[in-house]
Amino acid sequence: MAITNASAGTNIHEIADGVYRINTPVDIVPGGFSFNQYLIVDDQPLLFHTGPRKMFPLVREAVDSVIPVSRLRFIALSHFEADECGSLNEWLSAAPQSVPLCSQVAAMVSVDDFADRPAHAMADGATLSLGSRAVKWLDAPHLPHGWETGFLMDTRTRTLFCGDLFTQGGTGAAPLISEDILENSEAFRKPMDYFSHSTHTRQLIGHLAAELPGTLACMHGSAWTGDGATLLRALGERLVGNGSRPMGLDL
Rank of each mutant, 00 (worst) to 15 (best):
I181F: 00
A123G: 13
L231V: 02
E237M: 12
N11R: 15
P100F: 11
A76V: 06
W147P: 08
W147V: 12
R133T: 09
C162I: 15
L101F: 14
P25M: 00
V105H: 07
G214E: 15
K190D: 06
S65K: 02
N242Y: 09
D43Y: 03
L47P: 13
F33G: 03
C85L: 12
L235Y: 08
A16M: 08
P25N: 04
H207E: 02
G169D: 01
I67E: 01
L101H: 10
L143G: 01
S196R: 14
T155F: 08
L232N: 12
N184E: 07
A115R: 02
G221V: 08
F48R: 01
V41T: 12
A187C: 06
I177D: 00
L46P: 09
T167A: 14
T167C: 14
H220C: 03
Q37I: 00
L239D: 07
P213Y: 09
L165S: 09
V26W: 12
E211C: 14
H220M: 03
L138A: 09
T155A: 11
D116T: 15
L160D: 06
C162G: 03
G146Q: 04
I15F: 10
R133S: 11
D64A: 15
G32N: 00
H220Y: 02
L101A: 15
P144L: 10
S244W: 09
I28Y: 11
Q44G: 02
A229K: 05
A82W: 11
S244G: 01
T167L: 08
R158V: 04
V63K: 02
C102F: 10
R73N: 14
V111S: 08
C102N: 10
P144G: 11
A115V: 11
E84F: 13
D27C: 00
V59T: 13
M122T: 07
W147Y: 15
F48M: 10
A173L: 06
D17H: 14
A217L: 02
P52Q: 10
I181S: 00
S185G: 09
A119D: 12
T50M: 05
M219F: 13
A76F: 07
G150C: 03
E81T: 11
A119N: 09
P175L: 01
T167Q: 11
P68W: 03
A8R: 13
C218N: 09
L231C: 02
A119R: 10
I12D: 02
T50V: 11
S65P: 11
W91A: 09
